[in-house]
Design a protein around this nucleic acid. Sequence first.
DNA 1: CGAACGACCTGCAGGC
DNA 2: TGCCTGCAGGTCGTTC
Length: 254
Amino acid sequence: MLQGQRITGLIIRDSRLRWPVATDLPARLQGRQVEALKRRAKYILIRLDQGGLVWHLGMSGSIRVVTADSAVQKHDHIDLLLDSGNRLRYNDPRRFGCFLWCANPSRHPLLADLGPEPLGPDFTGELLYRRSRGRRQPVKSFIMDQKTVVGVGNIYASEALFEAGILPHRQAGRISRQRYALLSEKIRRVLASAIEQGGTTLRDFLQADGRPGYFRQQLAVYQREGLACRVCGQTVRSRVIGQRASSYCSHCQH
DNA sequence: CGAACGACCTGCAGGC
DNA sequence: TGCCTGCAGGTCGTTC
């Protein structure tokens, strides 16, 4: 339990992340008490008795709970020392994450324009429909835009569009209210299912406990280009949309 | 304003 | 075997 613990120190081994870790962070954090732990989109927000932290794991970051004598591994960037004697050790091979101090983490500018949580009550088909009017961009780009809804990355966007029977390159502004109702439902279902299975392991991604995620086994189109669609048998196709590989079944999706 | 796209970075796969 | 290239991912910042 992190809440209630006091921070006894911070070790910065490698400050190179998306933004350099501030050199005054150890001094700022020393002696602070953790008041609350929250999440918004993929940001971890830690409220302290004075200020707090905005922490993002990028795509390859992980945190493990270790003790002082645990061997340091490649890409271990930061240790957050706690008065329990444990440490939170942050490892991030690709350095896409960040570790930022903020006077009020939940009001950090990075969070200002984020759309609703996909599993929360504010995310509806009606919202997708309204926000998409007049938009000419592909629907896949639209749902991957964090201003539309947070948390829908390339894998889950591809899968949800397949489940909803919508072609990824279809113009967002030309999709009906009814189809967006279905799409919002599928986005929720796909994300909930992926979370249940511990995420999707591609190459080197692992869960916090070191086990792989098992959602990969039920991917319908993502990274299945050239293979038979699991529903109709037709070959899964792929094209680049918004600089991202996007696979789909042209028989099941319209 | 929306939209497109480059940039960041490393590990891995594939080709030679 | 070893080198080189290309790709993958999340999301900000810049440019059109």
